[in-house]
Computed example of a mutant assay.
Amino acid sequence: MDSAPAPSPSLSPAALHRLVQEGRAPRLLDVRTPGEFRTAHIPGSYNVPLDTLREHRGELLAHLDEDVVLVCRSGARAAQAEKALADAGLPNLRVLEGGIVAWETVGAPVNRGPERWDMERQVRLVAGSIVLATGLVGVFVPGTHLIGTAIGAGLTYAAVSNSCMMGVLLSKLPYNRGPRPDIRKVIAELRSTQ
C-alpha cells in the first residue's frame, strides 16, 4: 500500500522569532501577492508570489539552501509552495505555522507599508456580495439564486481542496499585483546572502 509523503514540518512563530533573534534566521520566502507583502512582512523575507515561485522554481532552487521557511497569510499558500519546491527537489522545507497572522499575534516584528485588504477578506467580500445580490435579485428573477448556490459550492470545494480559484483570480487584479517582484533581483539578493 502506497502512503502519501509526510508533510514537511512546520515552524512555530515563537521558534522562528527565536532563530531570528539569535542571528540564525532561515531564508524566508513570502509567497503572498506583492500588495499583501507591502502591507506587512517579516523583516528580511523575500517576496516570491506563489505563481512566480511555481514558474521559476528551477531557477530559485539553485539559490536556496535546505533552511527555507515559507510564509503566507495563514499557511495554505505556503503549503502549496512547499509542495512545488519539494517536487522540484528541495528537501527540508518548513511552513510558518499560522503565517504572518500568527507571527504578528506573538508580537514579532513586521515591516509595515500601506494597508491593503488581504486575499481572504477580498474573497469573503466578493463571494458574500454575489450571494447577497443574487438572493435579492432572485426574489424578482426566478433561478438567480442558483448563482449563489454555485458560489457556495465553489467555497466548499475551496475548503476541502485547500485551494481557492476566486483567490487566484483576485490575485491577478492590479490592486493585488502591484509591481511584480523581478525574479532576477530576488535571485541576486538570494545569491548575495549565501
Results as ranks from 00 to 15, higher is better:
Pro91His: 11
Gly138Ile: 09
Glu22Thr: 05
His63Cys: 09
Gln194Thr: 08
Asn92Thr: 01
Glu59Asp: 13
Val110Gly: 01
Leu173Ala: 15
Pro13Leu: 00
Asp2Pro: 14
Thr52Gly: 01
Gly89Phe: 13
Glu104Arg: 11
Met166Tyr: 03
Asp51Leu: 09
Glu120Thr: 07
Cys164His: 06
Phe140Arg: 05
Leu61Ser: 11
Leu28Trp: 02
Leu170Cys: 06
Met1Leu: 13
Gly98Cys: 05
Asn111Gly: 05
Leu125Glu: 02
Glu115Lys: 13
Glu82Arg: 13
Thr33Met: 08
Val186Tyr: 00
Ser3Thr: 12
Arg32Val: 01
Pro9Thr: 10
Leu190Trp: 00
Gly138Leu: 08
Asp65Arg: 05
Val69Ala: 09
Leu19Ile: 01
Gly178Tyr: 01
Ile42Lys: 05
Gly143His: 12
Val71Ala: 10
Gly58Ala: 03
Val139Phe: 03
Val71Cys: 09
Val101Pro: 00
Arg116Asp: 01
Val110Ile: 09
Arg18Cys: 08
Ala6Tyr: 10
His63Asp: 05
Asp118Leu: 06
Leu132Gln: 06
Asp182Val: 04
Gly143Val: 10
Ser45Ala: 15
Ala158Thr: 05
Trp117Met: 14
Pro43Cys: 09
Val71Ser: 07
Arg54Thr: 10
Ala25Met: 08
Met166Trp: 00
Ala127His: 00
Thr156Glu: 02
Arg124Cys: 06
Gln122Cys: 06
Val110Phe: 08
Ala76Leu: 04
Val131Phe: 08
Tyr157Ala: 15
Leu28Thr: 01
Leu132Val: 11
Leu28Tyr: 10
Gly58Arg: 10
Leu60Ile: 04
Ser8Cys: 15
Glu120Phe: 08
Gly128Ser: 08
Thr193Asn: 04
Arg121Tyr: 03
His63Tyr: 13
Thr39Gln: 03
Ala133Asp: 07
Gly89Trp: 13
Thr105Phe: 05
Ser8Ile: 10
Ala108Ser: 07
Leu155Ser: 02
Pro9Glu: 15
Ala150Met: 12
Val168Asn: 15
Ser8Asn: 14
His63Met: 02
Arg24Asp: 14
Met166Ser: 02
Gly99Arg: 04
Asn47Pro: 14
Arg184Thr: 13
Trp103Arg: 03
Ala188Arg: 07
Gly113Gln: 07
Ala88Asn: 07
Gly167Asn: 03
Asp65Ala: 11
Tyr46Ser: 09
Val101Gln: 09
Ala133Ile: 13
Val68Asn: 08
Leu60Asn: 06
Val20Cys: 14
Thr149Leu: 15
Thr156Asn: 03
Leu53Met: 11
Ala76Asn: 12
Glu115Arg: 13
Arg94Thr: 07
Val141Met: 12
Arg184Glu: 14
Arg27Thr: 15
Pro179Gln: 15
Met166Val: 14
Thr33Asn: 09
Gly138Gln: 04
Met166Ile: 14
Leu173Gly: 03
Gln122Gly: 07
Gly113Met: 08
Ile100Asn: 07
Leu132Ser: 10
Glu36Tyr: 00
Gly128Ala: 05
Leu53Ser: 12
Ile42Pro: 00
Ile187Val: 12
Pro142Glu: 14
Leu60Trp: 01
Pro34Gln: 10
Pro7Ile: 02
Val141Gly: 01
Pro26Glu: 06
Glu59Arg: 15
Leu173Glu: 03
Glu55Gly: 00
Val110Asn: 08
Ser8Gln: 11
Cys164Glu: 06
Pro142Arg: 12
Ala15Thr: 12
Phe140Gln: 04
Met119Gln: 11
Arg24Phe: 02
Ala15Leu: 05
Leu173Met: 13
Val131Gly: 06
Thr134Arg: 01
Asp2Ile: 12
Asp67Phe: 02
Asp182His: 09
